[in-house]
């Protein structure tokens, strides 16, 4: 649950973030056109690396070979297509199956990268800001769970330590059976402690007037003019992409031969809108980096 402090897009209103990620993931799952997948993949990759730094580059270095492996393996099981590259195990290895495998793997990895970006940008506080009004009870529950988990983990360490001190805990050398039984003992003790503690918390909530009126929420995010501009921009671009999908501008067939919708005329506009939509967080990030650089060089 780390927060991407230096990212301009992460500091926008959560509504902008959710619209962007919903768009990126929904379009990503629907469009099979190889060029669209490539565009989405590049945007996701760049943004993921910007958000996660060196660690991000390492993850990407693991994921990219995965694409190649999935792409290379798919033709071994899938023999559809007319252009046979060579025969392997007595079966044809076709160009179409290879491209299909590459597209699928690209789509999968792109989704993983977008989800990685989502985890870095849409932190739990943003989630609760968005849903606090629509589902107040459920989001309060979620908030309490997020607070309780670290709290209970701390208590587990205390309980395990105390058990070890009286010679009953399981250590590194214990058998698996002992470790399992010890873990369950700790869990059982934790349950009693946590339930009792919960009742105290609840009484305190009641004493402070929980449920007597509409619950106010701590709001750190304000909808600024920039957020509204971004929302309108994202909405317009998404509408353009939807028009392209509806006019079959994003279709692709992989058997018997690879045929993808040509990117010309109106379809080119749809593709441009798709790229513009996806590049937005990277663009904001880069714009801010440049501004920062300029204002620093003036000093």
């Amino acid at each position: 649950m780390k927060r991407a402090e230096n990212d301009s897009f992460s500091r926008c209103h959560p509504a902008v973030g959710i619209v962007f990620f919903l768009g990126a993931i929904l379009f990503g799952a629907m469009i099979m056109h190889p060029l669209y997948i490539l565009a989405s993949g590049i945007c996701a990759l760049v943004y993921y690396c910007l958000l996660n730094g060196v660690k991000g580059i390492k993850t990407v270095a693991v994921l990219l070979p995965l694409v190649i492996v999935i792409a290379a393996v798919n033709p071994l099981f899938n023999h559809e297509g007319e252009h046979v590259l060579f025969q392997i195990f007595g079966r044809p290895y076709t160009w179409e199956a290879l491209i299909y495998g590459a597209s699928l793997a690209g789509m999968l990895v792109t989704m993983l990268l977008w989800m990685g970006c989502y985890n870095a940008v849409m932190t739990s506080d943003k989630f609760i800001t968005l849903f606090g009004k629509a589902i107040p009870t459920i989001s309060l529950l979620l908030l309490m769970v997020l607070r309780l988990v670290p709290n209970l983990l701390r208590k587990i360490r205390q309980l395990a330590g105390a058990r070890k001190c009286i010679g009953r805990g399981a250590g590194e050398k214990s058998t698996k059976r002992q470790q399992a039984v010890d873990g369950m003992n700790v869990l059982s003790a934790l349950i009693s402690w946590a339930l009792e503690g919960g009742v105290v918390t609840a009484d305190s909530m009641k004493a402070r007037g929980y449920g007597t009126g509409e619950r106010s929420r701590f709001q750190i995010f304000r909808m600024t003019a920039r957020d509204i501009v971004l929302l309108v921009l994202l909405g317009t671009l998404a509408a353009a992409v939807i028009v392209a999908i509806a006019r079959d501008g994003t279709t692709a067939e992989f058997a018997p031969v690879v045929t993808a919708a040509p990117i010309r005329g109106l379809h080119a506009a749809g593709f441009a809108a798709y790229c513009a939509f996806l590049i937005l967080p990277v663009a904001l990030h880069v714009k801010e980096a440049i501004q920062w650089h300029i204002s620093r060089s003036r000093i």
């Binding site: 309490m144 769970v145 988990v149 983990l153 587990i156 470790q179 934790l190 609840a202 009484d203 449920g211």
Partner: peptide, 29 residues
């Protein structure tokens, strides 16, 4: 949401959910 649960119920549910989460962590196997 409709039922407007009382704080005692709410906190107990939160505690149980949190316990379900950490049941993943408590046993190191």
């Amino acid at each position: 949401e409709k039922r407007r649960p009382q704080p005692r119920e709410l906190v107990t549910v939160a505690v149980l959910s949190a316990l379900a989460v950490i049941a993943r962590v408590a046993i190191p196997l």
